[in-house]
Design a binder for these strands. Structure first.
Lengths: 194, 194
DNA sequence: GCGGATATTGACCGAGCGGTCAAGGGCGGC
DNA sequence: GCCGCCCTTGACCGCTCGGTCAATATCCGC
């Protein structure tokens, strides 16, 4: 495993992460071997273990990096918007847009959630995202704009809609992201009968 | 692999499926070896391959059986209810109740969705469930009781809420299923602002 | 152009995997 | 009692995997 990183080294590391993400998404984590990853890059096996202590560490790093990036995107989208309902809407749209641009991460995250080795990292990521949403929900409940129900459950409900519609647009790839986002927002705000 | 099945054989097969389901749910599919499964039952390895052609077949059978059971539960719950909105509600409640009783299957299904070998089976199962929901939604749209939007997307949105709230109640196990179901239904019908 | 840190190679290793199979037990019918 | 089928055993096989390492290349400050 590496100690310091020169620019050249940083680039290699990024290549490995990108390549690993692609293969994990396509074939799954376990069926993808370290040999597959280095072969796809056309380098020796030692390169991998110069930058990562283990295959496990690569996935963990991918999960951390992707969550960091998604969260940054959400925060940028929300900015200093004051209306809590609108903050939720902007967060939803940012999430859908991010996944549309980083399709490979959906499968990776979904797998990680099912493996006891990575579930803790995933659970922590999710906790952070959910607690963001909960804050907005509570503001909305105080304002009387949002129905007075357990904010944690509501946050999970929203998260579920976003996740499933993301998954669906990944498969039915021709769906325009904006339209899906519109429906997602209106479903969460007004429900089926609104 | 077996040819015919005596009562004794059927019992063994059920034991293997139950045991496999438990271990796949706890540790994941790939990390669970066939040796683990037969060891947990205290039998020789050959027993497994007498009843299943491969480890893969066991998981496929688990997915088929669980989906069949869940669907039966939904249909029983809905019965001959005429109101489409109420049919959707009954379906949601049946799903949450079924998963509460078969917690081990959630992780298995979620994993299977990420593995290219099993995704087809999963996709087919999901398609069936979604098309059921779509039928109810269309009825509701014609009646003017449900907002006139793409029924397929709406069905996926509902499915997402159910899935995520299921996942959450599995982790936070003390949540009363009925209350979660109440929130799930009211969220889907009325949204956040209803 | 030398010295040391960074980066790369690929043969090699032990472990564990999914899957096979020759052999034998148990049990029902006759 | 004995035949024949259902069921079980567990040693064994070929293979792939994650991971190691001594040797070597590349690069940069001096």
């Amino acid at each position: 495993m590496r100690r310091k990183l020169t620019p050249r080294g940083r680039e290699r590391r990024d290549q490995l992460m990108e390549c690993g993400a692609r293969l994990f998404a396509e074939r799954g984590y376990h069926p993808t071997s370290v040999a597959d990853i280095v072969a796809a890059l056309g380098v020796g096996k030692g390169v991998f273990y110069w930058y990562f202590a283990s295959k496990e560490e690569l996935l963990t790093e991918l999960l951390k990096a992707s969550n960091h990036d998604l969260r940054k995107r959400q925060q940028q989208a929300i900015g200093d918007e004051a209306d809590p309902v609108r903050r939720i809407e902007l967060g939803i749209r940012a999430s859908l847009a991010w996944f549309a641009e980083h399709r490979e991460y959906f499968a990776i995250i979904q797998f990680a959630a099912t493996d006891e080795t990575f579930a803790p990292v995933l659970a922590r990521n999710r906790e952070i995202t959910i607690s963001d949403t909960i804050r907005h929900l509570k503001d909305g409940i105080v304002d009387g704009r949002i129905v007075d129900r357990d904010p944690a459950l509501l946050a999970h409900a929203i998260h579920g809609v976003v996740a499933e519609l993301t998954r669906h647009t990944l498969i039915d790839a021709n769906l325009p992201v904006d339209e899906v986002a519109d429906l997602c927002v209106s479903f969460c705000l007004d429900g089926l009968c609104g």
